[in-house]
Amino acid sequence: MTLLEQLGIKHPFLLAPMAGVSTPELAAEVSNQGGLGSLGLGASTASSAREQILKTQELTDQPFQVNFFCHQPAVLDAQIAQQWIDYLSPQFQKYGATPPEQLNCIYPSFLDNDDFLNVVLETQPKAVSFHFGIPHAHQIQALKAAGILTLVSATNLAEALAIEAAGIDVIIAQGIEAGGHRGIFNETFDSSVRTADLVQLIKKHCQLPIVAAGGIMTGQQAKVLLNLGADALQLGTAFVQCKSSNANIAYRKALFDQPITQITASISGRPARGLINHWHMQIDTPERPQVPAYPYTYDLGKQLHAAAVQHNDHGFGAFWAGSNVAQIRELEAADLINQLVLEMNFA
């Protein structure tokens, strides 16, 4: 059985599960057009995750995936945290704001407990994917027993081999070109492999189906990766501009006006690719101190962004985007899927 048959979709296009940007409406539009819609639920509570899944199921009877974070629990180093707060204090002062006295762990991990697992088992989406690592063995077994397909992001061959050994169904090959957070298991080490190279590496050494992710904006690019061994493609940046996404006006405008990206860990504590803004130009200086652990750093980053927005400055936004964002097109989800299929078939 092919991966498309396993997923129950017509076209080899998966919507990347972008936490904060994905919506039930966008997921349903992609699924209804023959792709695999998605919900990025890593920043959600269990109750919110349930609501979003149920809403999506109201909007489509087609398959879709949900996504969670599998980051290892981090202990916050108080000294590093204070150095970071002190370093960013002048930025808060610019906007007449006071930085927080302490940083909080704002995003739970799927590994912390089985709350998210129980929501998935209750609502029964077609597939569930994971970023930053692999679920516990008992969680994987429970998902398999329920007939729910599992996918995990790999940024290098070692991670792909670990994913296969854990009994996961599908490997998402996330190349360095991808927008948003790198799916690295070890946040201190990133192999930085290109999508095309990663697909070929995994194809040679693993038996599982491969979903290529990173830098895919056109059907021609998709065809190249399919020819290299990918079974399907996952696109995020191309869909951020859709009216049904949750991206704000400033984010949408920046995608078209300043389409140059860079990777930074300053926003969240983990490396992530986004549109160049204040973080890259003012914060990532040679004297920048060590960032606190993820997601504690994100707590401060979000508060600084909120303070700046009060003064109509959106330069501290987390405007995630892939390296080929300059090729973005203003198309709604259904039209974008159709265009990608057309380009792929005539590539």
Rank of each mutant, 00 (worst) to 15 (best):
G8T: 10
I9K: 08
L14T: 15
A16D: 00
A19S: 14
V21R: 12
P24M: 01
A27Y: 01
E29F: 14
V30C: 04
N32W: 15
N32Q: 15
G34S: 00
L36I: 15
G40K: 00
T45F: 13
A46I: 00
S48A: 14
I53R: 00
L54P: 03
Q62W: 03
F64M: 03
H71R: 12
V75Y: 11
A78H: 12
I80Q: 07
I85N: 01
L88G: 12
K94T: 08
K94S: 07
Y95F: 15
Y95W: 03
G96E: 14
Y107P: 00
Y107L: 15
D114E: 10
F116M: 04
L117F: 03
L121T: 02
P125S: 13
F130V: 09
F132Q: 05
A142V: 13
T150N: 02
A154M: 07
A162S: 15
G167K: 13
A173L: 00
E177F: 11
G180Y: 02
F185N: 00
E187Q: 12
T188R: 09
S192H: 03
S192N: 13
R194C: 06
T195W: 01
L201G: 13
L201Q: 15
H205D: 11
L208E: 10
P209S: 12
I210S: 00
I216H: 03
V224T: 08
L233M: 06
Q234A: 07
T237C: 03
K243I: 03
S244T: 09
N248D: 15
R252D: 10
A254F: 01
D257H: 10
Q258E: 13
A265M: 12
R270T: 14
N277H: 07
H278T: 04
M281A: 10
Q282D: 14
R288V: 07
P295S: 13
D299C: 09
K302G: 09
L304M: 13
A308N: 05
V309L: 13
Q310F: 01
H311P: 05
H311I: 06
N312G: 08
F316N: 03
Q327S: 13
E330N: 09
L331C: 04
L331N: 01
A334F: 09
Q339N: 06
L342Y: 12
N345C: 06
